[in-house]
Simulated assay, not measured.
Amino acid sequence: MTLDPIQHPLLADSQHGFFTRKGGASSGVFEGLNCGYGSSDQKDIVQINRARVANALGVDLAQLAGVHQIHSADAVPVDGPVTDAPKADAMVTATKGIALGILTADCQPVLFADHQAGVIGAAHAGWKGALDGVLGATVAEMERLGAQRVNIVAVIGPTISQRNYEVGPEFRDQFVAADPSFSRFFLRGQKDRFQFDLPAFGLHQLGSLGLEKIAWTGHCTYADPGRFFSYRRSVHQKEADYGRLIAAIAL
């Protein structure tokens, strides 16, 4: 089976893809393109999957950089192969031949590019990272490498949609405490529950940074088990583990 990367016109000048679970070598609950070494999947199978992604981007596996994601607001520069992944949730590079890969399973994968400056970025933006500023940190690191904010484009890939993201009042309280206007990203649900619009919040954060060309691909990870892994869906189905999707971009 061939890979099924989702691409976006804003990133057309870069090799990129929000890769689905199709085209991978994993089986069981990881069936498909599981790219997460942090899962309990066989490491050699995950490596095969990641090699297929690297090949699709036109780079060697060693050039597909990643970070040890911790739901932080930290972004780091990359200028060569990463042998010991730093703890962070975003990467930027201006080095030709390097691909940046972010893993998600409901959180937002965000790919960035300033095609004029030759600078790219990739961020893992779950609710905590997005609230704490990981997207702004990514843009700031890109600027340090020569990017100009007015030229940066950013695309949010498959993530959990508002319809499938139920949260409690204490979750909403954290956002409202940060900014009362953030209440608009929540719809009242059953009893004391709310539905949180993560991609709308991500787009708001990107827009507030001054980025003018931004988009969400419109895909919900929870709602399409045939195409996407989903942490929340795996919990609801009482599965032992879950696969990780990869979103990647290369210069």
Rank of each mutant, 00 (worst) to 15 (best):
L100D: 00
C220T: 12
K87G: 14
K213N: 14
A215K: 01
R149W: 08
G101A: 14
T104I: 14
Q148R: 14
V155T: 02
R188S: 15
Y222E: 03
A140F: 07
T138E: 00
A130N: 02
K191W: 11
G226Q: 10
E141I: 01
F196P: 02
I120N: 00
Y222G: 02
A99C: 05
D106T: 10
W216H: 08
T104F: 08
F196R: 00
Y222A: 08
Q195N: 15
R172I: 03
F112G: 01
E166R: 11
V167P: 09
G126N: 14
Q162A: 06
R172V: 05
Y222S: 07
T138Y: 10
F185Y: 12
H219M: 11
C107P: 14
H124S: 14
A200Q: 09
E170H: 12
L103H: 10
R149G: 06
Q205M: 15
T93G: 08
K191N: 15
A137L: 06
M91I: 09
R144I: 11
G157K: 02
E143Y: 00
A130L: 01
G129S: 12
F229D: 00
K213D: 13
V119R: 08
D197L: 02
E166V: 12
K213R: 13
E212S: 14
F175K: 06
I160M: 02
L100M: 07
Q190V: 14
G97S: 04
M142K: 00
W216D: 00
I156N: 02
V153K: 03
L198P: 05
S208C: 13
D106K: 01
N164Q: 10
D197T: 02
G157E: 07
R149I: 04
L211V: 04
S161C: 07
P199Y: 03
Q162L: 06
A94S: 12
E143K: 09
P169L: 03
F196S: 01
A90N: 03
A177F: 15
P169H: 09
L111R: 01
A125Q: 04
D132W: 10
T138S: 00
L209W: 04
I156M: 06
V155N: 03
L203F: 10
R227N: 15
A177Q: 12
G118D: 02
S161W: 01
Q174E: 14
F229N: 09
L211N: 07
L131I: 05
F182R: 07
D192P: 03
E166G: 13
T93Y: 02
P109E: 13
A154K: 04
N164W: 13
G121C: 03
L100H: 03
A123M: 03
Q108P: 13
G218Q: 11
A178D: 08
A140L: 13
A125Y: 05
F186H: 04
V134H: 03
C107Q: 15
L131Y: 06
L198Q: 05
G146H: 02
I120A: 07
P169M: 07
